[in-house]
Simulated scan of single mutants.
Amino acid sequence: MAKTHEIKVEKRNDEGKGASRRLRRAGFVPAIVYGGEVKPVSIQLLHNDVWHASQNEWFYSSILDLSLGGDVQKVLLRDMQRHPFKQLVLHLDFQRVNENEAIRVRVPLHFMNQEASPAGKTSGVVITHEMNEVEISCLPKDLPEYIEIDLSALKTDEIVHLSDLKLPAGVEIPELRFGKEHDHAVVVAKEVREEVEAAPVAAEGEAAAAAPAGATAAAAPAKKDEKK
């Protein structure tokens, strides 16, 4: 189960683009909390707190405790707007979590023991990670921060599919409900063979065309003069 992380927030009363710009200049990030039976609430967070949290994997896949003056609400980050080129977070969307309802979250994949595997030790074998995260469904109490994939037994030309992942109790991959065609590859170990390109062989006609004109004339027998 993923750990919960507490983040302090403040309620904001001013809304609109002008108010958001003023908040950002003052070092805050405007945000909104929605979902459940409670109406959406506009909040603000210190930008430095948000920026440091955003450098961690858990910020995107864990239950977050938003603390508003002692009132704690459990939420998931659903959207984050960043500045196109500056290291600035512009806006956040949080969704309230019901402890008794399943949630869908994309969690990162951690690949373990790849170098120690038979495929990892074989020269000329390339191991490709086709996915770096996967969408899971579970109750909030069962939410893992990540899914580990043990590749210690991976062999050349083997493929690890979604159905091969060992999931924690209470966790499932919703996409697998729709049939085998949705059982996508996660890891592929493939041997790369070097292809030696054969030198092109010139056709006889090309060789003849490339020969000097004088050589062709010299090769032809001279005609005898029949008249004396």
Rank of each mutant, 00 (worst) to 15 (best):
H91P: 03
V97H: 07
A219L: 08
E37Q: 15
E99Y: 04
Y34P: 01
F178Y: 15
D79M: 06
H52M: 10
A222S: 14
L46M: 10
S42C: 03
D65T: 09
Q81C: 03
T128A: 09
A153K: 04
Q95T: 13
K8H: 05
A19Y: 05
A209D: 14
K11M: 12
E15V: 11
P168Y: 14
D157W: 11
V41Q: 11
Y60K: 11
I159H: 13
I7F: 04
G27P: 06
P212K: 07
E6Y: 15
H110K: 14
T122W: 05
E194G: 11
S20D: 13
G35H: 04
E194W: 14
I149G: 02
G35F: 01
Y34D: 01
P84M: 15
A119Q: 14
L90R: 07
R96Y: 07
L176T: 03
D14S: 10
K190I: 09
S123P: 04
N98F: 04
E15S: 14
S61N: 06
Q87S: 14
L76P: 00
V201I: 13
A2M: 06
L46Y: 08
A2R: 04
N98H: 10
R106A: 06
D157Y: 01
Y146G: 03
A31Y: 06
T4C: 11
V89K: 00
V186D: 02
L46H: 14
V134Q: 00
V126T: 08
A53R: 12
E195G: 05
Q73A: 14
P168V: 05
V134I: 06
V188W: 15
T216H: 11
Q55T: 07
E206F: 03
V107G: 03
V201Q: 12
L68I: 01
V171P: 13
N132K: 10
R193V: 13
A153P: 03
D71E: 12
G70A: 08
K141Q: 12
V186T: 02
R104D: 15
S54K: 01
V187H: 00
D157K: 14
F85R: 03
E130W: 03
N100K: 08
N48T: 09
L45Y: 02
V126R: 11
F94Y: 01
A53K: 04
N48W: 07
L176V: 09
E37P: 13
E175T: 02
I136V: 08
T128W: 07
K17H: 09
P144M: 07
K228A: 13
I103M: 10
K121A: 07
K86Q: 12
K74N: 09
H52D: 02
N56P: 06
L23V: 02
K86G: 10
L77N: 05
N98C: 14
R96V: 05
V50A: 03
V33D: 06
H83I: 02
A215R: 11
A19I: 11
P140I: 13
A207V: 10
D71Q: 15
I127N: 05
L45F: 11
F94Q: 01
Q95H: 06
G27Y: 12
E99M: 13
Y34M: 00
L66H: 02
V72C: 05
E206S: 04
A218Y: 08
L45W: 01
L167T: 08
E226G: 04
A220F: 12
P221W: 09
D150L: 08
V41Y: 03
D142V: 02
I147G: 00
A217L: 11
Q44T: 12
D183A: 07
